[in-house]
């Protein structure tokens, strides 16, 4: 939030001095040309659009995070410096307000360290069972994509999962049991498997691409299922295809694409066609 680095329209500083010395009644009044405000206003729009475009173009990794932080800091700097007139206040006020939030940064560092530790202990103590489940799920995600991209092997996915950045939540541990049981995490699974892809984020899309389920011609074994409140595709898949095969919910989704726009948005009362289990 460096206010000194903030570019200012030429003459604004002189204007401020004129305002401070020339005003008789309102000594502390801030009078600056409208042009300056419009200029900052325009830049705020541009910067907001830029940060939106970071997501739009799907930038990932360090580039994404540094751009987001850069635009955030510049926007905050412009608002504080010009809109809030901090650039024209005396240093006594500037430091009184801007220095204490520095302590927050220290707090951030401490908590980042602490959460990293919490995460590693969770993996260590709760991770074993779920860890194997996780591998299983990855494999099932991959086996579901037999017709899809053959270039990715389960081992490769696992390796990339381990390499995913610190910002991305790491896969594994208690995801399956608890999550599915409490809130019904149909898409938890997509995310779960999705995290394994290199990007570390927005990877549900990537998996969607891979899991092209081959249409089955054997219609004799198809079943109908009426959705109840609290159902998720994942739960249904586990019930139909057996425990550990929740990732097969993709087949159900594919078979009902004309009804469902999104695997996580299902409405009770609708009747789904349930495809037979994979051969």
């Amino acid at each position: 939030m460096s206010i000194h680095a903030t570019p200012m329209a030429p003459g604004a500083e002189a204007d401020a001095h004129a305002a401070l010395t020339g005003q008789k009644v309102h000594g502390a009044s801030q009078q600056h040309p409208i042009r300056l405000y419009l200029w900052v206003w325009g830049w705020l729009f541009v910067l907001s659009a830029c940060s939106y475009l970071v997501d739009y173009f799907g930038l990932q990794g360090m580039l994404r995070w540094s751009l987001i932080l850069l635009f955030m800091v510049v926007k905050a700097g412009l608002i504080v410096a010009v809109f809030m007139h901090m650039a024209w206040e005396r240093l006594a006020l500037v430091y009184a307000i801007l220095v204490p939030p520095g302590a927050v940064l220290l707090f951030v560092a401490i908590m980042a360290f602490e959460s990293d530790y919490t995460h590693s202990t969770r993996i260590t103590y709760f991770g074993r069972e779920a860890g194997s489940g996780h591998t299983e799920m990855l494999e099932s995600a991959v086996s579901g994509s037999k017709t899809g991209n053959p270039a990715i092997s389960p081992g490769q996915l696992k390796k990339e999962a381990e390499e995913s950045g610190p910002g991305a939540s790491k896969p594994g541990a208690e995801a399956e049991g608890r999550q599915v049981a409490t809130s019904g995490g149909s898409a938890a699974a997509i995310e779960e498997a999705g995290r394994a892809a290199p990007a570390g984020r927005t990877t549900a899309r990537a998996v969607t691409g891979q899991n092209e389920v081959a249409a089955t011609s054997n219609t004799a074994e198809w079943k109908l299922y009426t959705l109840k409140p609290g159902d998720t595709l994942w739960k249904i898949a586990e019930a139909v295809y057996g425990r550990g095969h929740g990732a097969e919910y993709r087949r159900i989704f594919e078979a009902n694409k004309q009804l469902l726009s999104d695997p996580s948005r299902i409405r009770p009362g609708r009747v789904l066609r349930i495809p037979p289990p994979p051969a």
């Binding site: 997501d55 980042a112 602490e114 959460s115 990293d116 919490t118 995460h119 969770r122 993996i123 709760f126 991770g127 779920a130 610190p166 910002g167 991305a168 939540s169 790491k170 896969p171 594994g172 541990a173 208690e174 995801a175 999550q179 898409a187 938890a188 995310e191 779960e192 999705g194 995290r195 984020r201 927005t202 990877t203 549900a204 899309r205």
Partner: peptide, 12 residues
């Protein structure tokens, strides 16, 4: 940072 469950993707 500390959850072992994937964080939902806001873009989705």
């Amino acid at each position: 940072m500390s959850t072992t469950v994937p964080w939902p993707d806001p873009g989705e």
